[in-house]
């Protein structure tokens, strides 16, 4: 990889200041960024390491939502009693990202800020109707945050600081893994709230993580696997690659959605 300067800010304020440097790039766990740097797909002049900032770490339950700091690692989310009791589907999702060593480095904030079209966390944020808080003082609804493959509403130098997840009545995440990368070939996160259901699809869509409006409407009036049986996600919006055709992914979306609904109980 190309060389870069490395900065270890002592506070979020220092990190925000450092991010004003030309071609500055934030790094947290680096589980995506370091491979990207090795492949010379990015050449930042300076890396600003957020992984030591205690103010960005931790989980707390605040009323009807869970607040998780951006630099909280997947292993810590997976093992958190607060997450396990409030949103067990989220703990399970975090506990199945990559492998144990990857989960000891990778973070929630890094995952949502990168918005990989096959990452797990964006589907949870979108299905649960999370709010993404940033260093610019913005609170961005997940619906407005994920704009497309690797694209988010973050401005230049703006950092994710925290994600607030509303606590659902029930939720489940079903992931069909691409076995080599351990990313989702298709992942479906279903969340049930008193006001209705939300369904988010990852791994499959040309536009990155996406909601499945038709399934949401069906599940909001009848929350049962039968309500979505026979429904198909539009295949023209789906990725086709060596791992699966759009039709294959469309079929998986249907199967995984039904399984997720059943698992919600």
């Amino acid at each position: 990889m190309y060389n870069f300067d490395y900065l270890r800010p002592a506070s979020l304020a220092e990190a925000v200041e450092a991010m004003k440097g030309e071609d500055a790039q934030a790094i947290s766990g680096g589980q995506t960024l370091i491979p990207t740097l090795k492949a010379r797909l990015a050449s930042p002049s300076v890396l600003v390491d957020l992984s030591g900032l205690a103010e960005l770490k931790g989980v707390s339950r605040e009323g009807d939502k869970l607040a998780i700091g951006a630099a909280t690692r997947h292993a810590d989310v997976a093992g958190s009693e607060a997450v396990r009791s409030a949103i067990p589907a989220l703990a399970a999702l975090a506990g199945n990202i990559g492998d144990p060593a990857v989960r000891n480095r990778g973070t929630l904030g890094g995952s949502v800020a990168n918005n990989d079209p096959a990452a797990c966390y964006p589907s949870a944020a979108l299905a649960l109707g999370a709010t993404i808080h940033t260093s610019a003082g913005r609170a961005i609804a997940a619906d407005d945050f994920f704009l497309g493959m690797f694209e988010t509403a973050l401005e230049e130098g703006e950092l994710v600081t925290r994600v607030d997840f509303p606590i659902p009545t029930a939720a489940n995440y079903q992931k069909f893994e691409q076995p080599a990368s351990r990313f989702a070939l298709v992942g479906v996160f279903v969340a049930r709230f008193p006001g209705g259901a939300r369904v988010a699809i990852t791994g499959a869509c040309e536009g990155g993580v996406s909601r499945w409006d038709a399934a949401e409407a069906a599940l909001s009036s009848d929350f049962s696997a039968g309500a979505v049986t026979g429904m198909a996600f539009p295949a023209d919006a789906l990725i086709g690659d060596i791992h699966g055709t759009p039709a294959y992914r469309a079929n998986l979306i249907g199967v995984l959605t039904r399984r997720a609904v059943q698992a919600c109980g």
Partner: peptide, 13 residues
């Protein structure tokens, strides 16, 4: 004390 892949962590970190 925790497992980490040392090819995907910067020495500076």
């Amino acid at each position: 004390g925790e497992s980490v892949k040392s090819c995907t962590m910067l020495a500076a970190a």
